[in-house]
Amino acid sequence: MATKAVCVLKGDGPVQGIINFEQKESNGPVKVWGSIKGLTEGLHGFHVHEFGDNTAGCTSAGPHFNPLSRKHGGPKDEERHVGDLGNVTADKDGVADVSIEDSVISLSGDHCIIGRTLVVHEKADDLGKGGNEESTKTGNAGSRLACGVIGIAQ
């Protein structure tokens, strides 16, 4: 089992970053940390998408990683996509320092995120509470600013 993974985020604009993942036990939580720069100040949706395909930019990554066919939600919700990591918060300089621990994603097994795409979005994720159909699919997080395929790390 891989215990570490990394993702280099890039987009068409100024947004870029490096996100690290570490899972010490196969059924334990995954620590997610790193930094994203070039964002507007505020909240930005942060999700693992189904495919590791960036051939047409971030759009070819498909929908959120959702092997259990659930509705979109927040990272602490029972009803959520596996890939729903909530929001990252950018400061006035456009930098989001990421520090998350998640017990639904994994670096092995059915919820493995390796080979899938991590995406940072234009807007805040409403965590499935926006009151419309799009909220239950995407959290109304808007366009995909930057993305990268999650790969095994040393």
Rank of each mutant, 00 (worst) to 15 (best):
G142S: 10
I114G: 04
G28S: 04
K123I: 07
E122N: 10
S103W: 14
E41N: 13
N140W: 04
L85C: 13
S108R: 12
T55C: 06
A56D: 08
S69K: 15
D77C: 05
K137T: 12
K123M: 14
T55Q: 06
S99F: 15
K10F: 15
L118P: 00
I18L: 06
L9P: 05
P63R: 11
A96T: 06
V15T: 11
L118S: 11
P29Q: 09
L68W: 15
A124D: 12
G42S: 06
K37P: 07
D84Y: 00
G38P: 08
K31C: 08
D126S: 04
P75Q: 13
P67Q: 06
N54H: 14
R116G: 00
S106H: 08
E79F: 15
G34T: 04
G74S: 09
N27F: 15
N66S: 13
F21A: 08
G73K: 06
A56R: 10
H44Q: 05
V32E: 03
K123F: 14
T3A: 00
H111Y: 14
I105K: 03
D91Q: 04
C58A: 00
A141N: 01
G13C: 09
T40M: 08
V6T: 08
E79L: 10
E134D: 08
P29S: 10
D102P: 13
P75Y: 07
L39Q: 14
D84H: 02
H81Q: 01
T55F: 02
D125H: 01
K129H: 07
G11N: 08
V48I: 15
R80E: 00
K123Q: 11
D93Q: 12
E79I: 08
A56P: 01
A2W: 05
T117E: 05
G13W: 05
E134V: 06
S60E: 00
V149E: 04
E134P: 03
G38K: 05
K31E: 13
T117K: 04
G42V: 07
A5M: 05
P67Y: 15
A90D: 04
D126C: 05
N54V: 12
G34D: 00
S60M: 04
F51W: 12
D110C: 06
N87W: 00
A146Q: 03
K76V: 11
D91E: 12
G130M: 05
S108W: 11
D53V: 00
G130A: 10
V149G: 04
I36P: 02
F65Y: 14
V6S: 06
C58E: 00
P63A: 07
V98T: 03
I152L: 04
D126T: 03
P75K: 04
G130F: 09
V6E: 07
E41W: 12
E133R: 09
I150V: 07
S103L: 08
R144T: 02
H121A: 00
H121Q: 01
L68T: 11
S69D: 10
T117P: 01
D12M: 11
K76F: 15
S108Q: 15
I36V: 15
N140T: 13
W33T: 10
H72Q: 02
V88P: 04
V82T: 10
T89W: 06
S60Y: 01
V48M: 14
D12N: 10
I152M: 07
A61F: 02
A124H: 13
V32Q: 04
G131Y: 07
V8T: 08
G45R: 02
G11R: 10
S135L: 03
L9F: 14
P67W: 07
G11V: 12
L145M: 12
T136N: 12
G74A: 06
N87G: 03
L43D: 09
L43M: 12
V32W: 05
N54P: 10
R116T: 01
C112M: 13
I113H: 00
A2V: 07
L68G: 05
I114R: 07
G130D: 10
I18A: 11
V48W: 03
G13S: 08
D53R: 03
K24W: 15
T89G: 05
L145C: 07
D53E: 03
S69Y: 08
I114L: 08
H72F: 00
T3W: 13
R80L: 00
Q16P: 06
E41D: 09
F21W: 14
F51M: 03
C112G: 13
T136A: 06
D125K: 02
A146T: 05
